[in-house]
Amino acid sequence: MIGCYDFCGHYEWTFGWLERVGGHALVRDYWNEAINHDSQRHARDLIRNEGIPGMLKYWGHTLLEESPDLGFHISHREDVFRIDFHDCPSRGFLLRNGLNNYRDYCDHCMGWTGPMLQEAGYVIDHEHNHRGQCWWEMRPATATGGHAPAGSVAGQKDVRLRPDWPRDPAKLDRYCKASDPDAKLGAASPA
């Protein structure tokens, strides 16, 4: 039986298998069709119907289940919803267990949330360092400009204020007002 305890392990393995069988297009289709439109349809419905309050309901619940030791922090205002991951439960599981069957596991988050939020009328600012730390800001699709300064939404909980957060942008994967997993501004190699 495929269990839920080590889900992130076989989920990551599946990305690599799909790419070998059907190329990058099949991986993208999997994230959008299987995860966004099927598995996570409860998230889709909540966010399409309620916007940022729906994001708070969805991620507030699911992250608490996945990361009961609170390796994340949620901030929200009327115009922005933000998550800072200081210890991603999903990427952390892979790192602790030495699992690496796909070139960048972290892409799966933009792979399914990007299209989901686009359909709901939002765009994403995001950076990840492949080591279990990342941040996300979801704003209405009318938002423009670059990334908000560190600390301006999450205060001291902003992951970019960590002493070990890379200062060199080349060491990060970056997205700005994006909804497509391939819309990276910089593409650092996963460690």
Binding site: C4, Y5, D6, G9, T14, D29, I35, D38, Q40, N97
Partner: peptide, 29 residues
């Protein structure tokens, strides 16, 4: 177990993803 997490049990909502993965693979492959 070969792969271990820091929490004692998994999150049951991940069964949704396994079911959706099967549907996707059956439809596409």
């Amino acid at each position: 177990l070969p792969y271990v997490d820091t929490k004692p049990q998994g999150s049951a909502d991940f069964y949704y993803a396994t079911n959706a993965t099967f549907r996707f693979l059956l439809r596409r492959l």
